[in-house]
Design a protein around this nucleic acid. Structure first.
Lengths: 204, 204
DNA sequence: ACAATCGTGTAATGGATATTACACCTTCGC
DNA sequence: GCGAAGGTGTAATATCCATTACACGATTGT
């Protein structure tokens, strides 16, 4: 009972600190946020922060890589559910918007970009576990369709890049620049999807 | 002769300070760069920096908005030179890559994003004088074509968004994340252009 | 050549903050 | 209940840096 309780206590403290840190980092940026503010919001003490995370950078690391959800599996689910390519892409688009324009995600990306100026490796690790996975997932999806006899205008890797660029990249750039962005309307999404389907040779 | 020389001297000093500041800001980020480093590289003195720019933020402002080239005129030149829409877009693509993937520009964008966490207005001003202009320019180009009887799949504003998203946004996101990005190959550009032409209904 | 103007270099000032040290108190096993 | 282990709060430490103050020297118009 000792270990479990101990672990529970530590975990709860860890989570409280990380939650406070994430909130403050995304509100004010990394450098402007002081450990004092974090402790003030999370309760506990400075000493605990240093015990759990080593230093301020360690805390940022923990916050950013907390839940690196893999986009690869997400996409595989959609690709394997038997719908036509056109319909699969239509449903996938909504998920991508959810994923790439989520304010929490966007805020995190901004922090990573800010930090990447000083620590290039930090950004590389982040994007390899997020955007890269999504792109790879899309690429595999297109490749599987091609193997099943679907005729595509262009190689799978190009289509994956283009799909992401066409559907979300410009809005993501906007979101990153402005902090938030309005969810695109259904019509707007639909227009882009149809555009992609024509370009890829997938009109029905 | 007095005024001219004075002005010349001040201008030269101004330029030297801004050049040093831009270099250091893009290398290390805004917060990590000290005014001491800037003066050390530019020569002159701290007092001059404060006289010319007021404070550190004023210097950043001057650096970022130094040469806010308008993308609107750039695009109008291309649109007015009489080539077919397809050929115009083909030549325009190369210019956009030059513009959006230029390492100097990318480095600036990173700084703006980093700063935007603390100062949202700063980012808004920047993107209104750069990306927004380019988008508007594209939109007007498509609208003019439509007025001339060219049949397009979709409204001009959507096409402008999509063209930017399709051609550069994903690479720009990469560039912003990683700092630099390899210039895309001619084939890669060509493939995307043809994709866009199909989607927009502009195949020849 | 002279005196004034203005940039220049140096050296405070003052505040902020990451990090560490330390003494206290809670919590847990026995 | 008791003692140990370890979290907690507070208070130094120590550095770093934007900003200001000041005295010096160069440059210029007369």
């Amino acid at each position: 009972m000792n270990d479990e309780f101990e672990c529970d206590r530590l975990d709860r403290r860890r989570r409280a600190i990380m939650d406070a840190a994430r909130a403050l980092f995304t509100e004010q940026g990394f450098e402007r946020t002081t450990l004092g503010q974090i402790v003030e919001r999370a309760g506990g003490s400075l000493a605990t922060v240093y015990k759990l995370f080593g230093n301020k950078e360690g805390l940022l690391d923990a916050v950013v890589f907390d839940k690196a959800v893999s986009g690869e599996n997400l996409i595989r689910e959609f690709a394997d559910c038997g719908a036509s390519p056109a319909n699969t892409l239509r449903r996938l688009a909504a998920v991508l918007y959810e994923r790439f324009l989520d304010p929490k995600d966007v805020a995190l990306v901004r922090i990573v970009i800010a930090r990447s100026i000083e620590d290039a490796d930090f950004a590389r690790r982040f994007f390899e576990t997020t955007a890269m996975h999504t792109r790879k997932g899309l690429e595999q999806m297109f490749a599987r369709w091609e193997a099943q006899g679907v005729r595509l205008h262009g190689p799978p890797d190009m289509l994956a890049e283009v799909f992401l660029g066409l559907m979300v990249s410009d809005m993501q750039t906007d979101a990153i620049s402005h902090g938030v962005v309005a969810r695109p309307s259904a019509e707007r999404i639909a227009a882009r999807i149809e555009f992609f389907l024509r370009g890829a040779g997938l009109e029905e």
